[in-house]
Design a protein around this nucleic acid. Structure first.
Length: 233
DNA sequence: CCCTGATTCGC
DNA sequence: GCGAATCAGG
């Protein structure tokens, strides 16, 4: 199966949405986990919680004589490139909104909701309130954790309600990208609320994704994040 | 063992 | 460019 534009778009969004390579591969179908990873890297997306340390790049590309096609391969000393000390700060993302929107994606950004669809929400997916938990299963993936929470959260008006499920193909800069459920499930979707200006999530999910740094003595006891969130000490 | 992503390298 | 094989950490 070739990598069509759609498949690539799906791969990107699922990858950025926090889905694992296996989940993405399963979602796309007809591709292996390795294919997904390889494609993701070729696309330039990479570096998400990787179990493997980036320390040494295993120069052990030993003799892979398995396929035994090229018997003699002159292996000149490969210059190992050493990454210069580069401070990791993807933090500034929260403020600067970059209009790097896919080509055929921006068209769906402005969609009216003629169907209120009241009382029709999926029973399995609940909107968690502050302090609530949303664990659907052990294999569930994490929402992207913010690298650097802003000091203050800007208040914004909560939208009345957007009952329509937002598919990953309908994501845009304007809607909340918080994943609901997990990829692969039929009703997996994204929040789709109007975003808190300057943030990738709506107001409610900003409250889950970002933890305000409160002055001493006014700390919040339980972090609302399921797990894996930045620990407040 | 299972899982994960990273990397290499023959194709 | 693609992805199986392989590696390495959890």
């Amino acid at each position: 199966m070739a990598w069509t534009e759609e498949r690539i778009a799906t791969l990107k969004k699922l990858w950025e949405g926090g889905a694992t390579a296996s989940q993405i591969a399963d979602e796309l179908g007809d591709v292996s986990r390795n294919a997904v990873i390889g494609k993701a890297h070729r696309l330039g997306l990479k570096s998400r919680p990787s179990p493997v340390k980036a320390g040494e790049a295993k120069g052990k590309a030993k003799a892979k004589a398995k396929v035994a096609s090229k018997p003699v391969k002159a292996a000149p000393p490969k210059p190992k490139k050493e990454a210069p000390p580069k401070p990791v700060e993807a933090a500034a993302e929260a403020e600067t909104e970059k209009p790097a929107a896919p080509k055929a994606d921006t068209a769906t950004s402005n969609k009216p909701q003629p169907t209120p669809n009241a009382g029709q929400s999926s029973p399995k997916i609940v909107s968690v309130g502050p302090g609530g938990f949303l664990r659907q299963g052990p294999g569930d993936q994490q929402p992207p954790i913010p690298p650097a929470p802003p000091r203050r959260l800007v208040p914004a008006k909560p939208s009345p309600e957007i009952a329509d499920k937002t598919s990953l193909l309908e994501l845009s800069d304007k809607v909340c990208r918080w994943p609901m459920g997990h990829p692969g499930e039929p009703d997996f979707h994204f929040c789709g609320e109007a975003v808190n200006p300057g943030f990738p999530y709506c107001v409610e999910h900003c409250g889950r994704a970002f933890q305000a740094q409160l002055p001493r003595g006014a700390r919040r006891p339980p972090p609302p994040l399921p797990f894996g969130g930045p620990r407040v000490r």
